[in-house]
Amino acid sequence: MDEVTDVTTTSGEKVLPEHGSGEDPGERSGTPSPTPAGREARREPFVAVLYLLPALVVFGVFIFWPLVKSILLSVQGTDILGNPSGFVGLVNYTRLFSDPDFLQVLWVTFAFTILTVIPSIAIALLIALLLQSRIKGVRFFRTAFALPFAFSVATASVIFGVLFNPASGVLNGILNTFGIDKVQWLTNPDLALWSVSGATVWMQIGYNLLVLSAGLGALPEDVLEAARLDGASGLRLQRSIVMPLLTPQLFFLVVVGTIHSLQSFGQIKILTVGGPEDRTTTLVYSIYEQAFANNNSNYGYASAQAMVLLVIVLIITALQFGVLERRVFYR
């Protein structure tokens, strides 16, 4: 660093091994190429940061600074115009956990997550396993079942809104043929969360199916063949060989699916607007309601809720890393 004049290969060699033994053995910047002059090698650390800069600026302005600001907002009150009204300490947080409305929000969020993650993985798993069988038309089915993946929250929710329509929706039409009375899918307080969850399960099937199909396609063929030779077939093969080999994908989907469900917003906004009786108000919808709906501008209280969301997601992510590391070790 200090000997600027020394522009020989020795300085270059000095830099290189230092790199090869860096904390990231996967990286290969320190390639043993003697050609570039030492001067360039010295300049490189500075140049390298320049390449990171565009991304870092975006992250800084739109992720890290907002993160700091979210924390700051969450310890301040808010006046009617939405301006911070001074430091209030943890008041927003203590208020949150003594607010029965917020406790219901947490419960609804939890229920919604369970009702969406598990069924969407189970259904996708069933389809993925069936698509593994060597039958005609598999390619057609594969493409067809991936179609829900193309739907956005908005497009899917609008279609489900039409299907759920109590007066003329297809779902009630189907029930009608079985002689069952019209059901208020989205306005019955005991049913609304189930309906929204059902629509969400549908939205997540496509992604889950892609992940599981990719996992199944990459199963070690020799292990499967050996199991078949030993006489394992059908359900036995699925249960004892395929499922254990698929645990990494299933675990991944539980984690990603949970985080995804925690972030759900559009289907609730479009289908139920959080109602009836706030029975479909999840954490993210509650943030929206406090901060943005009806010009509430309750940024302090909403930010405290946003921090609760952040902490939950970080805990799940940490859990994922812990378990994944153990799994990698195990292999």
Binding site: G22, E44, I63, P66, Q263, I287
Partner: peptide, 30 residues
């Protein structure tokens, strides 16, 4: 991958951390 980047581990962690922060939790300041 190709450059002699100082504090590579640190920058790596910075990029990784951006994937763990749900946008919904920082949407108000944005």
């Amino acid at each position: 991958v190709f450059l002699n980047l100082r504090w590579r581990g640190f920058w790596f962690a910075v990029f990784l951390s951006t994937m763990m922060i749900p946008f919904e939790s920082i949407i108000i300041p944005n």
